[in-house]
Amino acid sequence: MTLNVLPPASTESGLPEEPQRSESAPLRPARKKKRPSLLPYGLIAPAALAELLIHLLPMVLGIWIAFITLNQLSIANWVDAPFVGFQNFVNGLNPNSSIGAEFYSALGRTIGFTIIVLAIAWSMGMLGAVLLTTSFRGRGILRTLFLVPYALPSYVGTIAWAFMFNRSDGAINHFLVDQLHLFGGDRPFWLLGGNSFWAIVIVTAWQMWPFAFLMLLAALQNIPGDVYEAAALDGASLWKQFTRITLPMIKPANAVLMLIMGLWIFNQFNVPFVLFGAASPKEATLISPLIYQQSFSNWNFGLGGAMSVLLLIVLLIASAFYIRMVLPKPKPGEED
């Protein structure tokens, strides 16, 4: 898997490597190798600088915004916006205020949303990957086809779904109500009310599963076929082979996949924004669109910033916990 490419690179970059050197050059100990070379630092400097500018600086700014009053009065000259300490956190995160109550219900909803979408996307990806590891006629075509939702620009795919979800002339109601005669002829809403939550679940799962499929397919192909042959000879059922061989052998790739997808899904913004516009229905308000709404529709960047900071902390804790618990630890010999 691609995860193993990092460690060897560091040995060639001039970092000291005590045991090897002391054996091969016993007469000139330590002098030459202790002189640090500036070259590697020079080489990574542009990347480090770019990283600083592109990722770290905006993050620090975002945290700063949470502590100032930033609205239409101060935005033109935001460097001088008044510092208000934790006031934004108090306003935005107090569960008894309407803004705070909205934030916590959106947070809970987003966690549920993440778990549901992750489960659907992963299962579909796994099913697709297992089916397509065996070779058969037309496998290439299917593989390409499965990747279409992932290759399509997110906005384009979602706009198509918005048309399909339309209550009066959408394809979905046409199929369910006009063709299958479900719901007693009463057309359900998909973009309003409770169903709107399922609309974003469906579209997000549709967009995410090809990624799961792709990663799992790559992982599956690393499992040697003779393991399965041996298991089959021992009389293991297909299900047993899946749970005892497939899952454990792809665990490292799987763990990373879950983390990446989970974070993506948690931060979902495009789909609700395209389906519902700037204001999502109450039943389908996820955390990122809510922050957007506070910041950009209500011109209250301080509050949006405070919510983002809290979100960042929640995600950091969850990720750290996950990495410690689930991700495979490096074996003693591989530690760097």
């Binding site: 809403f189 309003l192 009310g193 204001a279 229905p281 709404q293 529709s297 209500n298 011109w299």
Partner: peptide, 24 residues
Amino acid sequence: QVSEGQMETLVGTAIKNLLAQAAQ
């Protein structure tokens, strides 16, 4: 009012949600 833009968003969204309830 300085907060006119914000008013439009908050009141407009509240009405949107009320209309959605009525529509269902």
